[in-house]
């Protein structure tokens, strides 16, 4: 199974840019969301090998998000 990257970024264009680059240039499976809360939910059900996150986002700060994901 390919390694999986989760990108969390609330700015839609930046999200699109990051996912395009990673999909183009890496063999990994790229999963995206613009919502940090949803990211935590995703991480509860699926396994990710790498999380790339924005820091300032409405709802949850990126660093808190990482803590939550690690717990999940």
């Amino acid at each position: 199974m390919a390694e999986r990257i989760l990108i969390v970024e609330d700015e839609p264009h930046m999200l699109k840019l990051l996912s395009m680059i990673l999909r183009d240039k890496t063999p990994y499976e790229v999963i995206i969301t613009n919502n940090p809360i949803e990211a935590v939910e995703l991480a509860k059900n699926e396994k990710f090998d790498l999380v790339i996150t924005d820091l300032k986002m409405p709802g949850l700060h990126g660093l808190q998000l990482l803590e939550e994901v690690k717990k999940a």
């Binding site: 700015e11 264009h13 930046m14 840019l17 395009m20 680059i21 183009d24």
Partner: peptide
């Protein structure tokens, strides 16, 4: 900075 990063990134693509 953010919009600039987006402009530069898409331009490169």
């Amino acid at each position: 900075n953010n919009p600039l990063a987006i402009i530069l990134g898409f331009t490169e693509i």
